[in-house]
Amino acid sequence: MTTALLRRFGGLVLTLVISSFVIFAGMYAAPGDPVTFLIGNPENLTPDKIAAVRAEYHLDEPLWTQYARWATGVLHGDLGQSMYYQQPVSDLLSSRLPMTLTLVAMATVLFVVIGVGLGALAALRRGSALDSVVTGFTTFVNSVPNFVIGLVLVAVFAVQLRWFPVAGDGAGLTDRLYHLTLPAIALALGSIALISRVTRQTMTEQQTLDHVEAARSYGLTTRQIVVRHVLRNSLGPVVTMCGLVMAGMLAGTVVIESVFGLNGVGKLLVDAINTHDFPVVQAILLYMVIGYMVVTVAVDLAYPLLDPRTMARSDRS
């Protein structure tokens, strides 16, 4: 178990180092000199000025030195200075993160509850009209781009019915949750399809197993069988899938934030790309990669707790 853990951790660090280098080298190799964006006014583009700015941002050093400098900074919590806002990147990120994380959290609650619920319903009523409706609905929703879903929600619930605000972040917790309801639904809908499908499939597989048959012959009620045996044994794949989807959402808010005009990390990323603000782009990409990997590894580690059989298997091998 310990060696497996260590190997997993080593792989994580290695992938992280490589990804961070890819991100950094990408920005380094980008055509177009950041100096021209930094100085802005073309009249100030004198050789002295250029040299001064290059030295200030350490742009005159070779790639490896720059990467080492950046990586050490990141490890100390210093993400560099935004070229556009003239602010530390960490300040920018920390002011935008709460919004994005709240959105992801809300969407996660939605897709876990609704997705698992619908999947379980479809599995228990397999072959019924309800099953077909759930499968049909989830398949269709999965094929509509989430920005279109978002706009439909705005058109119906914000503009026509006026139940929710059209755009904006909201101040205070309750107001923020209220403002984020539609975005969270739009973000969650596509994943509900995926989760309900996975839940339905694993639960149907479980239902046909001998131990369920045995439980039934003991005279346990359907409710007990479903909760204690079928659902309990389906948790592994379902939780893994939920974790992966949530991890993907950390980066998936970009489009939804753009639809609803939210000032989250995704909006910051789009703005930073448009203004060639490379330190900000680097930091956000790194945050998203780290977030994604941490969640996936956490899910990996949680799997044996949910399904002790896998632990026994890995010990034997």
Partner: peptide, 22 residues
């Protein structure tokens, strides 16, 4: 491919676009 998979969803594309302009 593992490193590519570490970039979730649109992220890798965003990196390419940030580097080579849209």
């Amino acid at each position: 491919t593992d490193v590519m998979f570490a970039f979730p969803g649109l992220l890798f594309v965003v990196l390419v676009i940030a580097v080579f302009d849209r």
